[in-house]
């Protein structure tokens, strides 16, 4: 089994965020917000793309209504839960 397959959703999402924010993984926690990490709306679009490619899911996300959309971006913890939900609904 490859390393990535044993990583949790949380680990892999934090890797994506750390790369985009150019911060160390240790600086990211579930309570972190995108603002804390310095991820602006344009960077967020790249994060969403990485999430879709990494987890093979389609994330419902429109940059015009990022805050109010279906996909929770209020915190890293919220995003982990949202990605897990999308993965499980894909597997249904």
């Amino acid at each position: 089994m490859s390393d990535t397959a044993t990583l949790t959703v949380s680990d892999r999402l934090m890797d994506i965020l750390a790369e985009q924010a150019i911060v160390d993984r240790s600086e990211i926690s579930p309570s972190s917000t995108l603002e804390d990490l310095g991820i602006d709306s344009v960077a967020l679009v790249e994060v969403i793309f990485s999430i879709e490619e990494t987890f093979d899911i389609a994330v419902p996300f429109n940059a015009n209504e990022a805050e109010s959309g279906e996909f929770d971006i209020s915190s890293v913890g919220g995003m982990i839960k949202a990605v897990e939900d999308l993965i499980s609904s894909r597997n249904d």
């Binding site: 996300f61 429109n62 015009n64 209504e65």
Partner: peptide, 18 residues
């Protein structure tokens, strides 16, 4: 780019979405 609307162009309207 995630800036396109799926349902309509609503400039200046509070419910615009792309």
């Amino acid at each position: 780019l995630r800036v396109m609307s799926k349902d309509g162009c609503r400039p200046f309207s509070a419910n615009r979405n792309g």
